[in-house]
Amino acid sequence: MSIQTGSQTVGPYFNIGMIRGGENSLVQDETVGQRIYIKGQLLDGDGQPVKDGCIEIWQADAHGYFNHPADPNQAQADPNFRGFGRSETLGAGFWFKTIKPGIIAGAQTPYINVRVFSRGMLIHALTRLYFSDESTNADDPLLNSVPPERRATLIAQREEFGDVPTYRFDIHLQGDQETVFFNP
């Protein structure tokens, strides 16, 4: 086994290399699925917004398929949906326009993988976003492995604004409401 390369912080200037316009919208006109917004703040240990962070998301298409060769159902994946999004966190936080993912093979409820980078983080942190309006969350093994009092940190709250629902998902790096982060 070769030694895996060590992680280093993205630093304060990552948007030169990691941010291109438009990567926070995952949908095209032809993309299948219910449009949603995801909005949130990345907050530090003082509860202050992190203005030089970056959130990446990875999710299945509307039917729960990934456009990736490891998915046995790749051939059925939506060709108009890559499933990857990225948003820097400026003063107003981060936001994505995407679709509500389907339930993937073997899973019980829909979810989105979330990765957090920022200046001051030597290695990224991983979390998951679940949806407040999914009763099947109660059947999810990962969610059930989290201490009950911390589960709420993983659940994006649905808010209604017009035709496109918004899910609010704040990420707390520290503090009483520290988001649950995973060791994959």
Partner: peptide, 30 residues
Amino acid sequence: YEGYKSTVKRGPTKPLIPMAHTLSELTGPV
């Protein structure tokens, strides 16, 4: 990591929770 001061307010402090791998971890953007 104390030597890098910005970690003090930004590094998660609670234990990480083990995550089993689903198709969502075994795929990625192509």
